[in-house]
């Protein structure tokens, strides 16, 4: 009797849970679905009193206009270069520093770690003017350096935090075994540490890539020339004070999301595995 009650309870809470899950998931997904839906309509169809759940007169006009009217390919290339470069460097430097903070017992590690974490907490808008002044003195406007290097600096605290957490969970014995075998720190790092935290690095890669790709604020400050603009900056030029060309804006956002979705799907398995270990054991 008790067993049956248990199963019944489990099934009921199962159905209840699934219903809630589906509702929340649909609400999360809804804006994206509506954006895709609207991007294939003309603007007069987008705002009908009785909404069209699927475009009745689908049109590619918005996508055409967006690709023609804008330097989207150039923006895409810039975004790709910057995001990829930043991601690579963030992963490398975070791994090195995270490993050092977690495994190499050196004096001042905790203080440094504290400073690094605190830098995460000042909003970027506050730092705009000082950063601008620094960039001006370096003469880095409208260069790839100017966009990429401050972004690397901005993402490093998060990356270091993540890698350090994950490193702490890797058993010490592995490292000690390597050192008994006579390996120096460098050897230990390359042949023991990195393979153990591959998932964490992969997760950091996706997160960083997505974040840099969508980061509008810093990129708009640095790239004022047409050729240097990145995707979010370029898309913002489609909105003026008087009228927003919704169709093109949405088309642009959808196209901009596609590479990110691909990256996410491809790296999905590593992503979850990686974050989990770091966060759980942390």
């Amino acid at each position: 009797m008790t067993q049956k009650l248990h199963l019944f309870r489990k099934k009921r809470s199962g159905i209840f849970g699934t219903v809630i899950l589906v509702i929340f998931a649909l609400i999360c997904f809804f804006p994206f679905y509506w954006a895709i839906n609207s991007s294939f309509k003309t603007e007069s169809d987008m705002f009908l009193k009785v909404p069209q759940w699927i475009p009745l007169k689908p049109t590619l006009q918005n996508y055409e206009l967006m690709f023609n009217k804008t330097s989207f390919p150039q923006w895409g290339l810039n975004s790709l270069l910057v995001s990829a470069a930043v991601t690579v460097f963030v992963c490398i430097f975070s791994s090195l520093t995270g490993y050092a903070m977690a495994k190499i017992r050196f004096r001042g590690a905790s203080i440094l770690f504290g400073v690094i974490v605190v830098t995460m907490m000042l909003p970027k808008y506050s730092m705009l003017i000082p950063l601008y002044t620094i960039l001006k003195n370096l003469g880095w406007f409208n260069t790839y350096w100017g966009i990429a290097i401050p972004e690397i600096a901005g993402q490093l605290p998060f990356g270091i935090f993540l890698i350090r957490q994950f490193m702490l969970s890797v058993p010490r014995d592995l490292f000690e075994a390597a050192q008994i075998d006579g390996a120096g720190e460098n050897r230990t790092f390359i042949s023991v540490a990195v393979p153990m935290i591959k998932p964490a690095i992969a997760s950091l890669a996706i997160l960083t890539f997505v974040r840099i790709w969508n980061d509008y604020l810093w990129q708009v400050l640095v790239s004022t020339k047409k050729d240097m603009m990145t995707v979010p900056v370029g898309l913002a030029t489609l909105q003026s004070e008087t009228v927003i060309m919704y169709g093109q804006v949405l088309a642009g956002c959808i196209v901009s999301s596609v590479p990110l979705i691909i990256v996410f799907i491809v790296f999905q398995k590593y992503f979850t595995k990686g974050i989990s270990a770091g966060a759980v054991k942390g």
Binding site: L128, I129, V220, L221, K225, S240
Partner: peptide, 21 residues
């Protein structure tokens, strides 16, 4: 020529002037 949009252009221009550019 440096082009600024009306959305965030003002913020960038203000920052530039603040940094004496």
């Amino acid at each position: 020529v440096e082009v600024y949009d009306t959305k965030n252009g003002p913020a960038v221009m203000a920052s530039a002037i603040a940094a004496e550019t």
